[in-house]
């Protein structure tokens, strides 16, 4: 037990915040989509597509920020495609989402192979470096944990209050939530349901892709085919786990990130004789258990999965 405690030092918490970045961005993106009434299962593919696009553009332009911009655009485009399928055509969100994931995944592999071929060693970029915040980063404990992080990590941390503000404190957020709960009432009140949902999917898609790009140009310095490895599905679970609230969603992301950070520590220090896969598995098991426990109270947006057709009742 003592060894376990010594593992939980400042470095551990700094790693936790770092690891939570893609989960925060992706789950908040998914949350926006779901609050508007659309489950976007394209998330896993969109993250990979963002990782590939961000890396490729950063590699050739030499600018990480251009890579970020490209990833945002790629994600927005993928969100637009999801909107065309799930909002305009109103087809099954489950199946079109899985289709988008397969499509974006295949496309990422295809484009990467086309651009880079099969080099002996994978091409890499110089990734983002930490941006210490003046003064604040010198604070004990809090400084290294929160204020000596990568720029995209700050962005992810700021995205939590930003999404909460957007959802609960702006007319746009009210419209979005109404569209997700009762599209017919929203429509009657003059809100354009299709437009709101499309906006949510486009913004959400951009956030998912940014989460992916963080992996390939910030957390790591290269794009690999397994770089996302299920983080998108974890984000879908986090939204349920967090009962569709940005704050609880973020808390869940930090918790899941803590498990992954712990797993890395234990693997490196070789103290606990538990297979590391058990710790990797834990977030998934916990989500299912949590879903079973809260299922009676869990209230997904009422119109989730229901396409809106103006003239149909």
């Amino acid at each position: 037990m003592e060894t376990l405690v010594t593992l939980l030092d400042v470095g551990f918490f700094a790693a936790l915040v770092r690891i939570s970045t893609p989960l925060l961005l992706a789950s908040l993106g998914e949350l926006l989509s779901e609050r508007s009434g659309v489950l976007n299962l394209g998330i896993e593919g969109i993250m990979l597509f963002g990782a590939m696009t961000g890396f490729t553009v950063a590699y050739f332009s030499g600018s990480l920020w251009l890579g970020v911009l490209a990833a945002l655009l790629a994600g927005a485009l993928a969100g637009l495609l999801m909107a065309f399928l799930a909002v305009v055509l109103g087809v099954s969100q489950h199946v079109s989402g899985i289709g988008l994931t397969l499509l974006a995944t295949g496309l990422s592999f295809y484009v990467y192979r086309l651009v880079f071929g099969q080099p002996a060693s994978p091409p890499n970029v110089v990734p983002f470096r930490p941006w210490p915040v003046p003064v604040l980063s010198d604070l004990p404990v809090v400084g290294p944990i929160l204020f000596n992080q990568m720029p995209l990590t700050y962005l992810a941390l700021l995205a939590v209050p930003a999404v909460a503000f957007l959802l609960y404190r702006t007319p746009w957020g009210l419209d979005l939530r109404t569209v997700g709960e009762n599209p017919r009432a929203a429509d009657a009140a003059g809100v354009n349901v299709w437009r709101m949902r499309t906006q949510a999917l486009v913004i959400g898609g951009a956030m998912m892709a940014l989460g992916g790009a963080y992996l390939s140009i910030s957390q790591f310095n290269a794009f690999t085919f397994g770089v996302v490895s299920g983080r998108g599905w974890v984000a879908v679970a986090l939204v349920v786990f967090g009962l569709w609230s940005p704050w609880r969603c973020a808390a869940g992301a930090l918790l899941f990130a803590a498990l992954e950070a712990l797993q890395l520590r234990l693997q490196a220090n070789n103290v606990l004789h538990v297979p590391y896969q058990v710790l990797l598995m834990l977030p998934f098991v916990m989500t299912i258990v949590a879903m079973a426990i809260v299922s009676r109270n869990a209230r997904a947006p009422a119109a989730l999965l229901v396409p809106y057709r103006k003239e149909e009742r």
Binding site: L39, L41, H94, G230, W233, V236, A237, V240, P275, Q277, V278, L280, M281, F284, V285, T287, I288, M291, A292, S295, R296, A300
Partner: peptide, 27 residues
């Protein structure tokens, strides 16, 4: 069972169980 008894969303659970199985088998 989770879907029928507790109304737990089946898309998420079936998806997550893939990873639980994969990590379990790898272990």
């Amino acid at each position: 069972l989770l879907k029928v008894r507790l109304k737990v969303d089946d898309v998420v659970t079936t998806l997550l169980l893939n990873f639980i199985m994969l990590y379990g088998v790898t272990a």
